[in-house]
């Protein structure tokens, strides 16, 4: 059996669209890894996360979890294993922070069951992890955009999945909260073995948290590999069309963009 989440030769398109936003994508998410998806706007990062999260169906190919086609897994069972945070989730009007975070327990409860003590502990833990315990009773429309983003992340954490799919989780967060969120993800990965797949536009951030990187371009996988092998000046020319230097020394990766550049390959 193949463990982990896997997309094989996946072609997928959004509802109503007549072209594939993902074209023959093969990506294997290893258990207990942090995998970063990078690529320009429109390269297919969000679509891949949606397909892995069972939000859109494969037109061709298959997405499997531990060797089982995810279409044969019930939505509730899947949600206990895999949680997804979209890029711009719709915030229900009047909902409090605590209620939103509590939604994360739905896959673990019966349809009419009330919260158990374990559910309440999970909510409290998630609120604490995203530093919103003090805002638990506030309506979501009365907190800042960054706090709202953290509340949504709290809901995902409260779901206690094995795998988190996060679409640009640092968007709308200030610098300190960006780094705290990324540190939290690293901690969850190291301490609980949480598998994290996240899309990021900041390549240096991606390099700082991820074990491996998937580079997407125009709905295709350009390359999958370690940070050192995937994040290169060659890739930045081909995929982002920028002339840049990349420095991987001292456990930090720095990208210095010099200006626009001509791609080496005519994709």
């Amino acid at each position: 059996m193949t463990l982990g989440l896997r997309a094989d030769r996946l072609c997928a398109r959004h509802a109503g669209s007549d072209f594939d936003a993902l074209r023959d994508v093969t990506v294997r998410v290893e258990p207990h890894e942090i995998l970063a998806l990078v690529g320009p706007n429109g390269s297919g990062k969000s679509t891949l996360l949606s397909a892995l999260g069972r939000e859109i169906r494969a037109r061709e190919g298959v997405v499997s979890l531990d060797g089982v086609d995810i279409r044969s897994i019930s939505r509730r069972a899947y949600a206990r294993r895999v949680a997804r945070l979209p890029q711009s989730p719709e915030t229900p009007e009047g909902l409090t922070v605590e209620a939103l975070v509590g939604y994360g327990r739905n896959p673990h409860k019966g349809p009419l069951a009330s919260q158990s003590s374990r559910d309440r502990e999970a909510v409290a833990r998630a609120l604490d992890q995203v530093e919103l315990s003090g805002h638990r009773s506030r309506p979501l429309d009365q907190i800042s955009g960054g706090e709202r983003r953290r509340a949504w992340l709290g809901m995902v954490l409260c779901q206690e999945p094995d795998i988190m799919l996060l679409d640009e989780p640092t968007v709308a967060l200030d610098l300190r909260h960006q780094w705290e969120l990324l540190e939290l993800l690293v901690r969850l990965n190291e301490e609980r073995g949480m598998t994290v797949v996240l899309s990021l536009h900041d390549l240096e951030q991606a390099a700082s948290v991820a074990h491996r990187m998937v580079v997407l371009v125009r709905g295709r996988v350009y390359e999958v590999g370690s940070i050192d092998s995937a994040l290169t000046p060659e890739m930045l020319l081909d995929v982002f069309r920028v002339d840049a230097a990349v420095d991987h020394t001292n456990d930090f990766t720095q990208v210095h963009v010099r200006g626009p550049g001509d791609p080496l390959r005519a994709f």
């Binding site: 580079v215 295709r220 390359e223 999958v224």
Partner: peptide
């Protein structure tokens, strides 16, 4: 070669 990514396939 397609499963190795577009870069490898291109090359």
């Amino acid at each position: 070669f397609s499963s190795q990514g577009a870069k490898t396939l291109y090359d």
